[in-house]
Design a protein around this nucleic acid. Structure first.
Lengths: 249, 249
DNA sequence: CGCGCCAGCGTATGGTGTACGCTGAAGCGA
DNA sequence: TCGCTTCAGCGTACACCATACGCTGGCGCG
């Protein structure tokens, strides 16, 4: 390979191949691609090498924009929190409706990205991520407007959050396992049936519970389940509101 | 190194070193040691090599007793569920007290083994693990005895479980980060203060919340927090009990 | 006594996160 | 316009990971 420049030959080969045409690499781009990768292939597929390749870059190039993998994960988690839309206030501005819609939205988001089940335990409350902070603020605002004290609003937000993430993490883990196995929810339940019945042998209550669920649509059961606990919490909050401050909205 | 046997020299060296004096390896032993390792060094330190070494065995020997690392994790999770003691019925047999004590016990266990925060998202409800099944059964029994229908008892158990795991996962993640940093909760809060205030700049409610918490003992705050949400849920349940079936003790 | 079984081992493979030092283009002051 | 600094991205290297596979040698049973 001669140094073509010295010969002055004007050709594609001599020109120093204009800088990467795609505007290089940016933190936003990396995070967005990571989310796509996670959605497509799940948590185990997220490696710096694979992510780099997808971005047309080497693995270690990513480290210019992200301190390490853990930091990338923090960013990814906050990124998906950013997807949450504000509830449509026109539909109803009652604190209870607004909170319920937010909870359902959060659940839907978590189930859309089931891999975060595995990440929430490492990141906790996604420390100080801007999107999560915005969401917290909005939720607190809703409670304060309804008449809760600030400190109680804070408690309320944490409770709702804990419930939604706890319930949904478990759902997401279940769905992830299903996805890995390539079976439908219904198929899996049928296949697991003998084992489950065996395992529950000593516990008639559990066995009956399984049996009652047998015919039903598993997805509907999960929805119903989630709604039950959420209602419970909202009922509890409503009761507190009645007994303390002057209720609003 | 000559093959001593050929010379018939009777010595410690010729004798084929009596089988491993420790009774070899068993699934129970492996799981127990894994829990110790996790408690001592955290989730990142759990590798088959390290675990094998601690047991005086090679890494791959473990695979005789455990299909793969994921299976080991399922076993480990169920193992710690097994630590939960039944609440002392003598103290009070009221369903609400019993449930509250179970919830606090579960939280204490999860905080004692903060690494499970990272595992719950992968295992979901620790499918069919015997210890978890026993616990579920007991909890359902408590609700049924109190007058809830079976299906509602099931919902109630799931709700309490989701709340406790959700809230505690977040606490555990926080504590794990603290442990990694080697600082106390108080120190960390102080050091993080400017960043937190900065991040909350646009959200006066959050800023005020932080400020209100500033002087308090963080641990006490977490306890209080947990208790609030739990009470909320129990209130909700109590209300349902009143409006439906005939309430029992 | 002899044989089959099987727990545990050694080795090997293909992955991982990330430290380090190089290259070459871009931007900027003279 | 030149020349220097800065810095994005790369290639290589290291230590470690889970785990497949085939061997070995001791134990228990016939």
């Amino acid at each position: 390979m001669p140094a073509n420049e010295q010969h002055g030959i004007p050709s594609v080969w001599t020109r120093p191949r204009a800088r990467r045409e795609q505007p290089a690499l940016s933190r936003e781009q990396i995070v967005a691609e990571a989310v796509r990768l996670l959605d497509a292939e799940g948590i185990d597929a997220l490696s710096m090498r694979k992510l780099g390749t997808r971005l047309g870059a080497g693995a270690t190039s990513l480290y210019r924009h992200v301190a390490n993998k853990d930091e990338l994960i923090e960013l990814v988690v906050d990124e998906v929190y950013g997807e949450l839309a504000e509830p449509d206030v026109a539909r109803s501005a009652h604190w209870r409706d607004v909170t319920a819609r937010r909870a359902h939205g959060l659940r839907a988001m978590l189930l859309k990205h089931p891999w975060i089940a595995s990440l929430l335990g490492e990141v906790g409350v996604a420390h100080l991520g801007p999107n999560l902070m915005r969401l917290s603020d909005r939720m607190i605002a809703t409670f304060e407007a309804a008449g809760f004290a600030l400190s109680e609003s804070d408690h309320a937000v944490r409770t709702v959050f804990a419930y939604v993430t706890g319930m949904t993490t478990s759902e997401a883990a279940w769905l992830t396992m299903l996805a890995r196995s390539g079976q439908t929810e219904q198929e899996w339940v049928e296949r697991l049936w003998p084992a489950a019945e065996q395992a529950a042998q000593a516990y008639p209550r559990l066995r009956k519970g399984y049996a009652d669920q047998r015919g039903k649509d598993p997805r509907a059961t999960r929805d119903e389940n989630f709604a039950y606990g959420l209602d419970l919490i909202l009922d509890g909050l409503e009761a507190r509101l009645g007994q303390a401050g002057p209720a609003a909205g």
